[in-house]
Design a protein around this nucleic acid. Sequence first.
DNA 1: ATTTAGCACTCTCACCAAAAGAGTGCTAAA
DNA 2: TTTAGCACTCTTTTGGTGAGAGTGCTAAAT
Lengths: 360, 360
Amino acid sequence: MKRRHYKTESNGAPTLSPRDMLVLRAVVEDYINSAEPVGSRAIVKKHRFSMSPATVRNIMADLEEEGYLTQPHTSAGRIPTGKGFRFYIDSLLKIRLMEPQEKRLIEDAYCNIDMEIGVIMKTTSRVLSRITHYPGIVFMPKFSRIILKHIEFIRLDKGRILVIFISKGGLIQNRVIEWEDDISQDELDRITRHLNGIMENLTLEEIKGRIVKEIEKDSKDYDELYQKAITLSKKAFDVQGEDSIGDTEIYIDGTSNIFDQPEFSNIKKMRDLYQALQEKRLLLELLEKSMFSEGVQVIIGEEVSIGDIKDLSFVLSPYGNPDSILGAIGIVGPIRMDYARVIPLVEYTSRVISNILERI
Amino acid sequence: MKRRHYKTESNGAPTLSPRDMLVLRAVVEDYINSAEPVGSRAIVKKHRFSMSPATVRNIMADLEEEGYLTQPHTSAGRIPTGKGFRFYIDSLLKIRLMEPQEKRLIEDAYCNIDMEIGVIMKTTSRVLSRITHYPGIVFMPKFSRIILKHIEFIRLDKGRILVIFISKGGLIQNRVIEWEDDISQDELDRITRHLNGIMENLTLEEIKGRIVKEIEKDSKDYDELYQKAITLSKKAFDVQGEDSIGDTEIYIDGTSNIFDQPEFSNIKKMRDLYQALQEKRLLLELLEKSMFSEGVQVIIGEEVSIGDIKDLSFVLSPYGNPDSILGAIGIVGPIRMDYARVIPLVEYTSRVISNILERI
DNA sequence: ATTTAGCACTCTCACCAAAAGAGTGCTAAA
DNA sequence: TTTAGCACTCTTTTGGTGAGAGTGCTAAAT
């Protein structure tokens, strides 16, 4: 009621006065630390506010009216709502600086690693979960957007051929394809040389398009080898991404970390979390949200349409270079997590793997 | 006391009379179904025994004295001890036959699969967890015991070479190695051809041994190409198995299934389980135990020296052909699991993947 | 000798009431 | 506009009680 006097924004929603923010921030941070409703008395004491609990109570009542806080029941302290957390994250949060040793920790994880793409992703989800103590999530790049440097065919036996894609950054991916006729390794080698000439520096997507075009052309113009090369590679590219959502693979590690969080002390919530993480649509939505935004993105459970995961929160960051975002990495945790610490960690990790993936 | 009169075995431990077994079995099976201590009255009722609860009580008291049962507190029913379960599994258990449709379910999972080894293992752990509703565990073969069919070197860029191993069964594994000098792809191709000639039909281990021998020989005898081939392949084989226990990789899937079990309704136990599964030593011990025994092996938590996992049980089966066991697969669950159903499922799955891995 | 009925005893669990504690909202004074 | 004071509400803890389940033991029955 008192806040009536304050200027309101164009949309009619009242702005928060500096003092409101101070209190909101105190509530959010105390709640992050304690996981319990925070009361007026506790706040003034802990933060040495120069106002009485009664004043704080008034402010808190206002904040509740505006939807930033709630009470679990009439005479308990307040806890922040989704909106409260959102405001905190967007406007109140002061990112902590990273310790150099934390940076080292992240970098070291990658020092002795080969370039197999799966291994990098697995390592990343592990690193994230280790340093943040929340489960780490990694969305693997759409391989089809990667620039190809080299392709290789190896005859396994009659009817089966191993295809190896090597990206410009040295990432490796392999697939087995079935093939009716028997092709000798020599012939495959010639096809390989042929294709590598054409395809250098294109993304898989572009190559796919080009192949389709070539097939459409009148095929009599070309010799048999070329013919074979085209159909073979069509098959090779078609196999991509059968399972896993839209070409994207997902790595999750460190789920056991979630046991540390008091809000997951009941099994029901744990199940919800696990079930949510299985939901491909949820993950896809998260991926989309985080990939097409710059920098670290915090997504609160309420803001995603799927599943009953209100008290969860995702901290995600895209990776790759600015022109071509490859995927996203991040962590899941309780909504009341230590964003000040986690955000820079996720960001830094994403920078590190972006570099690794890009260095040629 | 009454059992005094019974014949005792050579080691002095009394054998169980047929009636004791009947009761023990009833207790174990009822406990498997209910997860709750089972009392004397309930048993007679449910199993239509032709004796009174009092008699059963006496027998149960004896069984407790011998260590097959315990009471959680003075006036509750009995629950089987580890020893009780062990006896049940070894002597009392009647394996149920598998439904043909269950067999189909397992087979179908593998019908559309390429032969990349990681994919097979991942699929297996998923299949196991799906059909048993317990977390599936897969120990990946020691790659060094696999018979090699083909090796391939591909130049990634100056200083880095991709090595691809293809096993006789069509399994694929790749590694990146660093190399001081620049080697052209042509040269690598020649080396490849050379090596493939020598190495056919040997295991990685054997090849490794052979390479070491070759190096020890006076090296002047050979031309430069051969020289390079040897050192190159030494490097390729040396990289194997840096992380993961003794060349063995572990896949676990479906851990969320464990939430269904009433005994894991408290977080403490869940943590114990997760922590146990992280413990490499535990897993290694399990692997050893199951690999060097024939057929399905049930390992009760008590019987493993590590961690506080008393109420867990593992059902594991080795796979591969009898002459060369490659690894083990199986599941973890609460000690009171439906062995009659799970054991044949694990066994059948292990047979299926053994076949897949072996067909050439 | 073994089995069974009967009964006292023990332990858990669900339920209730009472008390303590925490926090609020409101009113009136500063 | 802020604050002190106070009544009120709601949760949590505590202790106590009774029902229920199950046992162990003893004495009778087979």
